[in-house]
Design a protein around this nucleic acid. Structure first.
Lengths: 260, 260
DNA sequence: CTCGAGAATTGATCCGCGTCAATGATCCGA
DNA sequence: TCGGATCATTGACGCGGATCAATTCTCGAG
């Protein structure tokens, strides 16, 4: 065991076992960890810890203090706000390699919940903040990540503000398709009929899209009848015509790879 | 005139006249400029320039490259996206002291337009990026600003996703009230019946709230009948009961100062 | 002052989708 | 294998707010 001082607290961690975790981390090179220098990477590895949360469990409630940050390793974390009367809106879905946490602030305004079985790699927040302050290159990566997330959030704002149910669901399918293609496969190898799985249940999709499970169901059936997709099972779909789907979403830039 | 090298370009600027501008800047201490060290502040002053844009003029279109960044000095800048069929959604309104620009990226996905007569203090983007990279404390302030903006954007996402027209308009009024109180007046000095002015026209409010000018008109009249506000003129309103307005908005934390 | 253009209000109508309710599918523990 | 629970699908209905249209208000030019 080694003892490390992160400014306002002392952390004791087994250095070897944790260092090795990052080497086998399936998402390491897509997270901000990949941009850390050698020393910072060692520190990150030392303060990291893996947590598993099963679907439906709350990780942090609104207004709670969030004393850790981290990366989603597998599964989907939902970020949501619930009004007094029970209405809820999901304001973000965090997929593997996404950064999770509310840094440089003592309380979040949104609840974090596992939308599926989830594995996250967490760091003590204060320790991570100290590390960020001492490593401008990590802070820069973090800034870029947050800027990207801000843009993505604004895109969804367009969706919620002025697109109808059909467009919202088409956009959601496209987002899933894009996330599943993010491994960076060359354009000519794109499958003509990609397959999509819903990683979360209908209720959460509805809460994210600002609609209802009934409307989602009707639209999926309607797309199936229109031969835009084929329902393999309730959660799996073969996209017969990605181009038409993109056109339907009215968000062309979300699927540049599949021309209409 | 002095000549300054910002990495990839050389800028010639009259140092004295520009330095003096920041001293008289009405919003200086609320912008990230206030956090710059002495050297950085001098650089900022040197690369800054004031631009005036009249209401309705486009500053940057979507997909354009945005070669400057800056702070809004007066007026309101709208950040929006327009779909092919003409539907438009405003994803952000920038008020005085707000930072404007799309840093560390060569093209924006949103258009910038003056929603009222506007005065902005601009910096060359590349020069500013260099300055940020060389000044971790400015980068940190920028990160905090972006994080705050991300949270604010998510709050509006809740609004667009699951709140009705009445709640949206009440929330908009509260936001204006809060912005106008940001000078930091002590709680006991709060005016019991504050006055609000719409800084932008109905069309832009509607585009921001994901509704229509007709609906806004009807809701305002309805609030007037319910004695929640008094219509001074078409753009000015006396808030008779801030507490009930907050309750109506269902976003209690937006007006903690006025208990229900 | 008048005139015309753009902005806001007010009224009438209609439709997308939320709501409620019933049925069907899947899964798990007993 | 059965029964209960959870989740998804399908149908019927109604409402909030978009749409269309007419009127009123505001303001700057002449």
């Amino acid at each position: 065991m080694a003892e490390f001082d992160f400014g306002d607290r002392v952390v004791q961690i087994n250095q070897n076992s944790l260092q090795s975790k990052c080497d086998t981390c399936p998402i390491h090179n897509r997270t901000m960890c990949a941009f850390a220098g050698e020393d910072a990477a060692r520190e990150l590895a030392m303060i990291s810890r893996t947590r598993r949360i099963s679907a439906g469990q709350t990780i942090v409630t609104e207004q709670d203090s969030l004393d850790f940050v981290g990366n989603v390793v597998s599964g989907v974390v939902k970020l949501s706000k619930t009004l007094e009367d029970g209405r809820q809106q999901i304001v973000g879905l965090l997929f593997p390699s996404d950064f999770m946490g509310h840094i440089f602030s003592d309380h979040t305004r949104f609840a974090y919940e596992a939308a599926s079985d989830v594995e996250i790699c967490v760091f003590d927040r204060k320790a991570f903040e100290t590390l960020v302050q001492n490593n401008p290159e990590i802070q820069h990566e973090l800034l870029l990540k947050v800027l990207t997330e801000l843009d993505a959030t604004r895109e969804w704002m367009v969706l919620l503000g002025c697109q109808n149910a059909r467009e919202r669901i088409a956009s959601f399918l496209l987002m899933l398709l894009r996330r599943s293609l993010q491994t960076g496969c060359p354009k000519e190898d794109l499958p003509p009929n990609p397959t999509i799985r819903f990683p979360i249940n209908r209720k959460n999709i509805a809460l994210f899209l600002g609609t209802t499970i009934e409307t989602i169901s009707r639209q999926i059936q309607s797309m199936s009848k229109a031969r835009i997709l084929k329902i393999i099972d309730g959660n799996t779909f073969e996209i017969i015509n990605p181009g038409r789907l993109a056109k339907m979403a009215n968000h062309e830039e979300w699927l540049e790879d599949y021309p209409v």
